[in-house]
Design a protein around this nucleic acid. Structure first.
Lengths: 329, 329
DNA sequence: GTGAAAGCGCTAACAA
DNA sequence: TTGTTAGCGCTTTCAC
């Protein structure tokens, strides 16, 4: 293979008959330059088809204009929409975005954290669900978390999970449901998920009903999830309302319900959670709680940029959710 | 704000009482080193909480171990699954992945191409749908395209679109459909989409039926798409079978069909295209043509790595599709 | 208006 | 087994 020599700034300088400094100035529109010089330099650049080496610039500036998004996977309507919205905003601000699919694997999450510490990215947005990663405590570099408690000093952008839980359960109660079950993922200390759970339990207790919860891990196969839901219908044939922790599970529950001859919404009502666009297109019948994904993205980007720019008192924020009324409840 | 001085290799060297070279060797496990030295260096690193600066290393090596994925958006089941699969594979090979959502905007696509030319990434996977970006012709750097013809010298990984078209249309014919319509996105020269169209037309002609196609742009709102589909039902009330160019459109068509009192599959049969996992979870009833997303990802990664490693005769590949039988056709 | 020179943090010949 | 030195390609003070 023919090794093409890389054209560097110095080559341009020589061809144009000026110094490296001048070429650099032309490149960055900085300082005083005569039109004649600018033209000469541009001509030389064109002739050589010069491409500045961004890495060299990054080394000097100690800044990469890169951020990483650490989420379990992008192959999920909520995360896909969130990451797309984040990318759109970062792009406008001149930042490139690294995809960090952690698969909920702590080791992978730690790898991405290292990127940050190794100065390969300027900041991190984390929305993964692993706990106990000690590096988060040690670093003072820019990190913003979404829907997840990571460490004292790391700001969190979340939607109002307690309110979301109330809306969902209240809807089922209003619909006349007597036996409402909640599905969630295994609760751990780092997730605001527990606020939905809390809202469910508070409202159930207030209405003197016994809260029943089934946990489904986030990252197992659909088949595995369906097994859990089958068990749920078997153990609780009286169930007439379900508050699912996400829309995918709501879909699966409706499907499994059919196996038990439950027709939605006549003899089973289901409220989902997330309300991503894709889900609403593919499952328009689903009644669900919509998280304000675009606003969450906007806020997370805003906070991360504050951190990158050296601001220290960056505050966590909670954004309101809303109910999407459709036909499953 | 307290400016923390960055710890560099030299600081470690001084503390450990050795040279930079030695520290670098310890860092990279290269060359001969006495255990004692290794320990000293590690101790110094720990004490200073040293983090190597990856950018400096990249500058020296002229390699970033970064690749960019240029697709219209990640917020779509097909692209989300494809990008997730690509990321998984690249990660295992030590490559990080940049998300390049082009929104089908040629300017954005060109920006990402520049990343490659500016040596910020080692390679590019493109699956966006813009044509006429001349840079593709000029560069000899590593690019692999997915489901898209980009330039003579750029290898393409695609699924068998002609076969997919045949399967879909044949299914509708077998189901007894007499008036089959195909929806696609506006055909341009760079898309293998036209092969599906071709299969549809060939099969229709063979059965002496008139092919009718409605085009829906990829990146307009669901509302806009539904408008087109309404028009379709109005202009062709006789339609009894639809071969949609993707599952989302299939979903929308089924929904719009309901407005016209068409019940699927009794008086309207619909076959979708893509068969991504999310879609199958959220719309399990959909009969569709499944693209082999994981295999496409595997192949694309394989080809890109060959290019990155200097191989020149990298060949395009076509992978088989299969039918997912469900209840909409 | 322009240039010389130092240096961003790391690696790898080449020496010792 | 370890150290010296010269870059990787760019930017920026400081001098003219």
């Amino acid at each position: 293979m023919v090794e093409k020599k890389t054209i560097k700034l110095d080559d341009v300088a020589k061809l144009a008959g000026v110094s490296k400094t001048t070429v650099s100035r032309v490149l960055n529109n900085r300082g005083y330059l005569s039109d004649k010089t600018i033209k000469k330099v541009h001509d030389a650049m064109d002739e050589l088809n010069y491409r500045p080496n961004v890495i060299a610039r990054q080394l000097f500036k100690q800044k990469t204009n890169l951020v990483a998004l650490v989420f379990p996977t992008v192959d999920n309507p909520f995360f896909a929409e969130l990451e797309a919205e984040l990318e759109k905003r970062f792009d406008q601000l001149g930042y490139r975005v690294l995809m960090g699919n952690s698969q909920n694997n702590p080791a992978k999450e730690q790898d991405y954290l290292k990127l940050l510490l190794n100065h390969q990215v300027d900041g991190l947005i984390v929305g993964s669900h692993n706990q106990g990663i000690s590096e988060y405590q040690k670093t003072t570099r820019p990190i913003v978390s979404i829907e997840r408690f990571v460490g004292k000093q790391i700001p969190v952008v979340s939607s109002d999970n307690y309110q979301g839980g109330l809306l969902a359960v209240q809807r089922l109660l209003n619909d006349g449901c007597k036996h409402i079950i909640h599905t969630n993922y295994p609760i751990n200390l780092v997730s605001p998920n527990e606020l939905r759970q809390q809202a469910y339990e508070d409202l159930m207790n207030k209405h003197h009903r016994k809260p029943i919860t089934y946990s489904v891990s986030f990252d197992v196969s659909d088949e595995e999830k369906e097994r859990v839901f089958r068990k749920m219908f078997q153990e609780h044939p009286e169930v007439d309302g379900i508050f699912a922790d996400n829309d995918t599970n709501a879909s699966l529950i409706i499907r499994v319900g059919k196996e038990f001859n439950r027709h939605v919404p006549d003899d089973l009502k289901v409220v989902g959670y997330d309300g991503a666009n894709i889900t609403r297109t593919l499952s328009p019948e689903l009644t669900t709680i919509q998280q304000p994904i675009p606003e969450m993205a906007t806020k997370a980007v805003e906070l991360l940029l504050q951190l990158i720019n050296g601001k220290t008192d960056v505050k966590s924020v909670t954004l309101p959710v809303r109910m999407i009324n459709s036909t499953t409840a």
